[in-house]
Design a protein around this nucleic acid. Structure first.
Lengths: 194, 194
DNA sequence: CACCACCAGTAGACAGCGTCTACGCCCGCC
DNA sequence: GGCGGGCGTAGACGCTGTCTACTGGTGGTG
């Protein structure tokens, strides 16, 4: 009845999100989440049959968060498609850098394999946003929008991943990912009009 | 003295490589590796103080393997830089697809953080190969070769990752990664002369 | 030739993990 | 007023990585 009574299911997910943001992927054990939610280690099982089920719910929260941030950014960006694409890309990279544990969790292969991630409801909306923008910004001679958007997304994702990994700054000698972001956008959409 | 006596250190790494290739990342527990190598679970500790030390050694083997495959491919490819780049990229994607467990292990963030991966000796040689080819293939107006190569590598890596992840085919509608590979190369190096 | 020091590998303990199962408690309904 | 059912507890199991005490064999030295 107290204000903290938000339903154990939601509390577990919230505790998990908090944990992965704060301590990283390795901290998100089932038992630690239960501890933080103030219940016994067996309690989560009623709502999440398996550890990966709980992790998937946490990762879905991550996708929702990222999508919300991107939409927020786009709301503030001007009408120019290219500018909007830069904003989207910047948000993606910032998210990956700021919430690296969550970002890792979101793209964990075993979660995907479990099928509980529901790509259609999580990552697809985000991708659709990208496809729309690409469709507006692309040149007539470019590849079809979905292919172009797919290649661009992969580029973004790779930058986020390898940048966090540290070998990209080491190898390229550049010290900020914005250089690579611009290079990627210029490459896929032609040089910036600017 | 028998032929099987290759030194426990090497046998452990070999068993780990075999295991990760065959069963995937989750199978590479310290104790399972020890079991496969025919020693007790405490034995690895003499050569690898920690589990991540052993995993790092396995991952380094993966980088060496990938590098060797790329060099082999390049040896067979013609002199045209663009053709050679396609060959390199294809090898990278094939490796990621065929040895997904190893590929994941190689880019695990906790291994990187342990410092035992030694990027300079493993991934840098590979990247240098790429930079050299890019330097030959790039247009004068393009970004500097290291930046261009970095962006291209990220693109490749992202394709490998997201393709294996499954959302790229789902989202783009394309059914083979070659389409995306070509799109990426065309984007970064200009349309193929063909 | 005897001894000893050393080193590789063994074996057991420990805490933590995910999963499973048997058990109580409490609330709402008949 | 009693009963049923869902929610959470608690303990067990086998597995994990790490730590520590130990043993057996081997090479060098007196």
């Amino acid at each position: 009845m107290s204000e903290g009574e938000a339903g154990l299911r939601a509390r577990l997910v919230a505790a998990g999100v908090d944990l992965v943001l704060r301590e990283g992927q390795s901290a998100v054990s089932l038992r630690e989440i239960a501890r933080r939610a103030g219940v016994s280690h067996g309690a989560p099982r009623r709502y999440f049959p398996t550890h990966v089920d709980l992790l998937s719910a946490i990762a879905r929260e991550g996708f929702a968060d990222l999508t919300a941030r991107v939409e927020e950014t786009l709301r503030a960006a001007g009408p120019d498609p290219r500018t909007r694409l830069v904003a989207l890309a910047r948000t993606y990279l910032d998210f990956a850098a700021a919430h690296h544990g969550m970002f890792e969790l979101m793209f964990r292969h075993d979660l995907l394999a479990s099928g509980r991630l529901r790509l259609r409801e999580t990552s697809l909306p985000l991708f659709t946003l990208l496809v729309d923008l690409v469709a507006q910004a692309r040149q007539p001679t470019d590849a079809p929008a979905p292919v172009l958007a797919g290649a661009l997304w992969a580029n973004l994702h790779g930058i986020a991943q390898l940048w966090a990994w540290g070998s990209l700054p080491l190898a390229t000698g550049v010290t900020d990912d914005d250089t690579l972001l611009r290079a990627a956008l210029d490459a896929h959409l032609g040089p910036a009009p600017h």
